[in-house]
Each structure stands twice: as structure tokens, then as C-alpha cells.
Amino acid sequence: MKNLNIWVGVFTLAFAGFVFWQALSFEYYSNIGPGPGLFPIWLSGMLIVLSLFFIVNAFKSDKIYFSDVFPKGKQRSKIIRILASIVLFILISPYAGFTIAGIVVLFILFFGEMKWYKAIGTSVITTLIIFLVFKSFLGVPLPVNAFGW
């Protein structure tokens, strides 16, 4: 089960199957014309067939191994760090506000790439610039904490 293609195929098949099952609950055709179920049923049906072809190919010839396409070591931890920092932003920004959440996220990403005090400085300045550009210059709101930043 080290073949990534099989996993992707199974995922799309499951997704398509779910959409198909859901689409069956909509009317396919009514007396006034085609119903809301027609397009979804055909599309998900097509995706089911395509996914099956994809899975067959994945078993037969088109093998893509996890170890070949995903990075290891430092690169892998970088990817995980990026994803984790976005999750962290979603979790803390409603309370901490954009500025603090932004500084934390940027610090996580800069840390290790430069000296820690430079990382803090760069994170603070970058976040403030983005905050000011969005909030003052463009007039679009960002998540804020109880103090309004």
C-alpha cells in the first residue's frame, strides 16, 4: 500500500460515490423539464467510471510511491510547519487577533532560517505592513482581538 495513486483513486471513487448517492435524492426529471439531480448524477457517474480506470492503471502500470514523491527530513518538516501554522492561525486568530496570530505564524516559518531576534523583527514588521495595507489602505477587515487589533 505504498502506491499513492491507489489512495488517490480510492479517495476520488469514494467522493464520487458519495456525491452520486446524495444526488439520487434530487429530482432527476420533472414534468417542467430537467431537475436538479440530472447534472450531479451524470457528473458523479462519470467520476466513478474515471476513478475505476485510474485505480486499474495504478495497479497495472502507473505506480507512484510515497517515498518517491514526498520529501524527507528537513523538507518534510518545512511542509508540515507550513500546514500546521495555517491551522494554528485559524485556531488562535479569533482571540489573539490578526497581528499576534500573524506574528506567531511568521515566526514559526522564519525560525531556523535566520537568527531568532531577526526572525521576530521580520515577523513583526511584515505582519504590521500587511495589517495596515489591508485595514487602512484597502479598507478590508481582518480578525481582531478584544483590543481591536
Binding site: 501554522s85 490578526f98 511568521l106 511584515t126 500587511i130 489591508f134 478590508v140 481582518l142
Partner: peptide
């Protein structure tokens, strides 16, 4: 890339 990522997050939120 961290800066682009931050613009991406802020932009998506807005």
C-alpha cells in the same frame, strides 16, 4: 514564501 503565505491567509479571510 512566509510573506506570500501571510498575504494568502489574510486575503482568503477577507
Amino acid at each position: 514564501f512566509p510573506i506570500i503565505l501571510m498575504v494568502l491567509i489574510a486575503g482568503t479571510y477577507t
